[in-house]
Nucleic acid binder design. Structure first.
Lengths: 347, 347
DNA sequence: CGAGGGATTGTTAGCGCTAACACGCACCAG
DNA sequence: CTGGTGCGTGTTAGCGCTAACAATCCCTCG
């Protein structure tokens, strides 16, 4: 990393420093043409071993680093993918992002993120446009919102976009976890324990996952010929789960509750504890997501696990396929798993 | 987003599509030189209003998007910053990332992330090198590890790198939360409640935050003339907190525990509940971080809040300063805040 | 009425790289 | 001895853009 100022004139003192060495500089030191250096770097075309060694030595000596802009300009490829991420610490989206980053890095792509605080048609479209201006080769939209899904309906055909978690109707490949199936598993588990019915704390109405979980819950109750209680709606936060719990605590005949995610389940547990309702003795509770803390709630929470890392990996795979000219209507579904713990345990 | 195939010849069917329009194409349509188009886009130099309108119309018509590689090649600026992020869902690092992304976006920079699963000297250096190859203009290293700090000691002087949360001794600007002060606040709060001493569940030894919190705890005990119990070490996870709790439950004279983070505090609460130890009646517990769920633990957790969004913002500020030729030894400290809840409440 | 000057536009060069082709040489078959 | 065939290397052009300078027009002012 030694920086060599031009031997003659004054050295620029700025952090930017002097000009970075170019292919031509390396070629000069190695005594070859710039083209030979290019061939050594990219492994294209034959180069005699001694020549290669001289070139590598020169690269080392100068601390040469290829100029990615120049390369991108001539090849038309930037080696960068964009991810439109929801600005939140929600366990799912954050984990998915890491899964994507990992898979992408292994395949030699860098990841540029553009976060969106309040998703909507325009903000998602803006974020995608932003990323395209950054010259990404493809975009992954983590789009758990209904509105995000709609934004994708206008996705251009000439640019690879894939969505994770939403946009069923959009003309882009979509990968999602089977939320309905997860909700079904949780609900059936609770029904199998002999409860008359199961209450549900749903997530925000504009989240597809919230809709699907609610749908899965409702379908399951129907299939078992059980009436569905009114839905209580939260916003994924523990606070909203707590409030839901305070209101539920007043219900008589409360047997079992399926919370839309683990955070809300936590709030629920808290509210029940304050109301003197014992879980699982008086009421059984299940959540969704299996955040790492769920096993240590009071009591440990039965929940539905989603493998977000896998989701991220497969999302990248879908995008790679799409960039290769693949189908715009590819779909992939990841199946969740029920994790049973004490919150639905024996009484 | 309407795509218009060239009216005459066959349309290439690949996802890559036909060549993107260039400045020259726009110039042709608008009947001006490519330079005038460039001036309209960048707002450099004077352009007559009618001309500008014609150019803008042509841009719109062709769906022109500037080629960022070409621009970067000639200006030497890419408008991209790199972030070396720890691959984890830990609340702190993830929140910091969003703070950074927000501040950067407002300033017109894009963020490229390079995640690192097991930080060490070389992996951090590799990640930075990776990002430099992506031609980022500066790098932010989220470096909570001791080893990460050491990696930064070799940071080159000619390239702007800043660290968040670690690398005190490194020749790079550092921003951190005053962990020692936070630990002092929590420990003093517990001592002020009349406890003889305070136990501590420390984070992993190679985390700077863990060291500093432990140090702050130990200093505070010393200053109050109180002997420090042996340190129990966890790994930030609820599981490790749970195990610590199981071992602590056997201690007699157990009064107060300061957990290194909220997740471990959760595990601790769980272990105590199983052991029939009531919090706060038998033992008082405090955590660190104030994750959004902490207020809904059983019981709600007293903890030390860190404003990670602020940390992210100031980190970007420090990097921006450094890129402007600022000091390599700038430091910024964010002061945390004690949030008192029931886990250290009245008995 | 010509010089000076600002506003507006154009022309040219070159950023650092890769693609495409050209060149020289050794080697072999006929 | 001649022509082909690789190998290893060099030369040239051009990707799309901005910086620098040149050119033009029109107006003002002495």
């Amino acid at each position: 990393m030694a920086e060599r100022p031009r031997s003659g004139g004054p050295v620029k003192a700025t952090a930017a420093g002097t000009r970075q060495p170019s292919l031509t500089d390396v070629a000069g030191v190695a005594g070859v043409s710039h083209m030979t250096v290019s061939r050594v770097i990219n492994g294209t075309g034959p180069v005699r071993p001694e020549t290669r060694a001289r070139v590598l030595a020169a690269i080392e000596e100068l601390g040469y680093r290829p100029n990615s802009a120049a390369r991108a300009l001539v090849t038309g490829r930037t080696g960068t993918l964009g991810v439109v991420a929801l600005e939140s610490n929600l366990y799912g989206p954050a984990s998915t992002l890491y899964g994507i980053e990992n898979a992408a890095r292994e395949a030699g792509y860098a990841i540029t993120i553009s976060s969106v605080s309040r998703p909507g048609r325009s903000s998602i479209a803006d974020a995608v446009e932003n990323l395209r201006r950054q010259a990404v080769e493809g975009v992954i939209v983590i789009a758990p919102h209904v509105s995000a899904g709609r934004a994708l309906e206008a996705a251009p055909a000439d640019f690879p976009v894939v969505a994770v978690g939403g946009g069923e109707a959009a003309p882009v490949p979509v990968i999602s976890v089977d939320q309905r199936d997860g909700a079904r598993r949780a609900t059936e588990h609770l029904l199998a324990l002999g409860h008359r019915t199961v209450w549900h704390i749903a997530g925000p109405e504009d989240w597809l996952e919230a809709r699907d979980r609610e749908l899965g819950w409702r379908e399951t109750l129907e299939r078992h010929g059980v009436g569905a209680p009114r839905v209580i709606r939260g916003d994924w936060s523990s606070r909203s789960g707590y409030e839901a719990g305070r209101s539920l605590a007043k219900e008589k005949d409360l047997d079992a509750v399926f919370a839309g995610n683990d955070q809300m389940a936590l709030g629920l547990l808290r509210a029940f504890a304050e109301a003197g309702i014992s879980v699982p003795r008086d009421v059984r509770v299940a959540g969704f997501d299996d955040v790492p803390e769920a096993a240590y709630f009071t009591p440990p929470l039965t929940t539905v696990r989603q493998d977000f890392i896998e989701v991220g990996r497969r999302t990248f795979g879908l995008l790679a396929g799409r960039m290769d000219g693949g189908d715009r209507h590819a779909r992939a579904l990841v199946v969740p798993e029920l994790i049973v713990r004490e919150s639905t345990g024996p009484r």
